Computed example of a mutant assay.
Amino acid sequence: MSLESSVASARKESKSLRATIPEGIVAYLDLKATDKLEWKMDTIKGKRVAIIRGVKK
């Protein structure tokens, strides 16, 4: 499954970015508004990837 979302600035004074999680990923990971996301960064076959896991409260 492949889904896309747009990235925007979180705040003017920050380098952080913000993205909306597509509905299909929300359903697939069974995410709720209070859940946390765990991000793991890796390199696979020379390409940078992020592996994101939903963490239940």
Rank of each mutant, 00 (worst) to 15 (best):
E23G: 11
K40G: 07
S16G: 01
M1R: 09
A27Y: 00
V26L: 10
L29G: 09
D35M: 07
K36P: 01
E23W: 10
A19D: 00
A33D: 12
S5V: 04
A27T: 12
D42K: 11
V7L: 08
K32R: 10
R18H: 10
I44C: 06
K15V: 02
K56I: 03
V49M: 11
V55C: 04
S5T: 15
I51A: 03
A19C: 11
S14H: 02
E23I: 10
I52N: 03
A19M: 14
I21C: 11
K57Y: 05
Y28W: 09
R18T: 14
L37F: 04
D35F: 00
G46A: 00
L17D: 07
K56W: 01
W39G: 01
L3T: 14
K47T: 13
I51G: 03
E4T: 14
W39P: 08
A50C: 05
S16C: 03
L17E: 05
E38F: 09
A50H: 05
K45N: 15
K15N: 11
L31M: 14
R53T: 15
K45S: 15
V26R: 11
R11I: 08
R11Q: 14
T20R: 13
K15D: 10
R53A: 08
L17A: 10
K12C: 01
K15Q: 05
D30W: 01
I52Y: 02
D42E: 15
T34N: 15
M41C: 04
D42T: 15
E38Y: 09
Y28K: 14
W39E: 02
D30S: 11
D35C: 03
S14K: 08
A50R: 01
K36G: 00
L3S: 14
K56S: 00
G54F: 10
G24H: 06
K45W: 07
I25W: 08
S16K: 07
G24F: 08
G54A: 13
T43L: 06
V55M: 12
K45P: 06
D30T: 07
A19G: 02
L37P: 00
L17I: 14
A33I: 06
K45M: 14
P22Q: 04
V7C: 05
E38R: 15
G24P: 10
A19V: 13
G54R: 13
R53G: 07
G24N: 09
L31G: 03
D30L: 02
R53C: 04
D35V: 01
Y28D: 10
W39I: 15
A50M: 10
R48D: 05
R48W: 09
R53W: 00
K57R: 04
S2G: 12
K56Y: 02
V7G: 00
S2E: 15
I25G: 07
L29N: 04
K32S: 09
L3A: 13
A19K: 07
A50E: 08
K12P: 09
K15P: 07
L3W: 13
K12T: 10
D42I: 03
L31R: 06
K47G: 04
S14V: 02
S5Y: 06
A33P: 15
S16T: 09
E38D: 08
V49L: 01
